[in-house]
């Protein structure tokens, strides 16, 4: 983001950072989350779930701002984000 001047509270502002969670077996591959993610955090996986759908996967995890748009627009209750502080790196499961 380009700013014409540094905001006065710039040192206090902290852009939130989220962690995306996916319930792979609920996904039906509509792509809404991928298309509407404002930070392009997601892509459609090349892999299939058990029902044969391509589910989303995270490619730019660092960009997620925990806006929850993916959660709200997902018709399948298959994806959500929550604030990073809730997860320690140890709990995070690596991509399958």
């Amino acid at each position: 983001m380009k700013l014409w001047r540094t905001p006065l509270d710039a040192d206090k502002v902290r852009v939130p950072h989220g962690v995306v969670s996916i319930i792979i077996e609920r996904c039906k591959g509509c792509s809404f989350c991928v298309e509407y993610c404002p930070r392009d955090v997601l892509i459609i996986s090349k892999k299939f779930n058990k029902k044969g759908y391509h589910y989303p996967e995270v490619i730019s995890a660092g960009l997620c701002v925990d806006c929850n748009l993916c959660e709200d627009i997902c018709p399948e209750f298959a994806i959500y984000s929550d604030p990073e502080e809730q997860h320690s790196t140890a709990q995070t499961k690596e991509n399958a």
Partner: peptide
């Protein structure tokens, strides 16, 4: 991105079984 942001390292996604709306 604002100068004030301190992004942590990418943590990837989590694969889970339950959703907050469940």
């Amino acid at each position: 991105m604002s100068t004030a942001v301190t992004n942590t390292a990418p943590t990837g996604e989590r694969q889970v079984q339950h959703h907050p709306k469940d």
